[in-house]
Amino acid sequence: MGFAFAERLGREGASVVIAEIDSALGAEAEKKLKAAGIDARFVQTDISSEASVAAMAKIAAQGCDGIHGVVANAGWANNVGGKLYNEITPEVWDHMMAVNVRGTWLTIRALGPLMRNGGSIVTLSSDTIYWGATKLLHYVTSKSALVGMTRSLARELGERMIRVNCLLPGLTMGEATKDIPQARWNDYAERTILNRMQQPDDLDGVVAFLLSDDAKFITGQTLAVDGGFSMH
């Protein structure tokens, strides 16, 4: 999803900074975006680390008159399912919160002061918060926290006319979901109103809209984009 967002925003004229923990993946993304004529920079970043996020923010702010938009997309989702509530270890629980909750907060904490007044932030939660996925308690809990975080941030940043909204994707095909069993993919597609699997490019237009002036009076909102799998 992160690459799809970067590509869409770059095509619309944005200079893009990619924060990614996997150096090979990040470098590959930068190369592809530049080959497409997009102004892109990759910064190796561990969003659970305050120092790493601060270093990324410093680089992101170089050579520009302020950051216009932030997409807090990074998170931990790979191979996190399969454990009941009483089988999840405290170590795994804490790591989930460190990345998905603390990491999102650290990212916005570092980049928010560097943003231009009137900018926009999009956080990434999950539609699982509406239907309560089993054997994913730590993940669903972390993504639920982002909804509350979004609402409070919207109020705190509103005086600077910075908007903060939360996007809830459904099960989306990509690196983070490549190990999900085929049976679950089939079940999800069958229960989705539009009757197909979700692709990253089903989301990039929504992100571009929320970052744009077309959404200049939308803030503090939570939007599920999952083909009708969940309704709210």
Score class of each variant (00 low, 15 high):
residue 1 M to R: 03
residue 6 A to I: 00
residue 7 E to F: 00
residue 8 R to Y: 04
residue 9 L to V: 03
residue 11 R to M: 14
residue 16 V to Y: 12
residue 17 V to T: 09
residue 22 D to C: 15
residue 23 S to H: 12
residue 23 S to V: 03
residue 40 A to R: 07
residue 40 A to F: 08
residue 40 A to D: 03
residue 41 R to M: 01
residue 43 V to K: 06
residue 45 T to D: 04
residue 49 S to E: 08
residue 49 S to Q: 07
residue 50 E to P: 11
residue 50 E to Y: 04
residue 54 A to E: 15
residue 54 A to Y: 13
residue 55 A to G: 10
residue 56 M to P: 04
residue 65 D to I: 02
residue 65 D to K: 13
residue 67 I to H: 06
residue 69 G to P: 00
residue 71 V to L: 02
residue 71 V to A: 06
residue 73 N to W: 00
residue 75 G to S: 11
residue 78 N to R: 15
residue 79 N to P: 00
residue 83 K to L: 02
residue 84 L to F: 11
residue 86 N to S: 11
residue 89 T to H: 11
residue 90 P to Q: 09
residue 91 E to A: 15
residue 91 E to C: 09
residue 95 H to T: 02
residue 95 H to D: 05
residue 95 H to A: 07
residue 99 V to K: 00
residue 99 V to W: 04
residue 103 G to W: 01
residue 106 L to F: 12
residue 107 T to I: 01
residue 109 R to C: 00
residue 118 G to P: 07
residue 128 T to C: 05
residue 130 Y to Q: 10
residue 134 T to A: 10
residue 135 K to Q: 10
residue 136 L to H: 06
residue 140 V to E: 11
residue 140 V to Y: 08
residue 142 S to N: 09
residue 142 S to T: 00
residue 143 K to Q: 14
residue 146 L to C: 06
residue 147 V to A: 09
residue 150 T to Q: 01
residue 154 A to C: 08
residue 160 R to K: 14
residue 161 M to Y: 15
residue 161 M to N: 14
residue 164 V to S: 07
residue 168 L to Q: 14
residue 168 L to I: 03
residue 169 P to R: 13
residue 171 L to W: 04
residue 176 A to M: 15
residue 179 D to F: 08
residue 180 I to Y: 03
residue 182 Q to P: 05
residue 183 A to M: 03
residue 186 N to T: 09
residue 187 D to E: 14
residue 189 A to P: 01
residue 192 T to A: 15
residue 192 T to N: 09
residue 196 R to E: 04
residue 197 M to H: 14
residue 200 P to S: 04
residue 200 P to R: 01
residue 203 L to D: 02
residue 207 V to P: 05
residue 207 V to D: 01
residue 207 V to T: 01
residue 210 L to C: 05
residue 216 K to E: 06
residue 218 I to G: 04
residue 219 T to N: 05
residue 220 G to M: 11
residue 220 G to A: 07
residue 221 Q to M: 08
residue 222 T to L: 11
residue 224 A to G: 03
residue 226 D to T: 12
residue 227 G to D: 08
residue 229 F to W: 05
residue 232 H to Q: 12
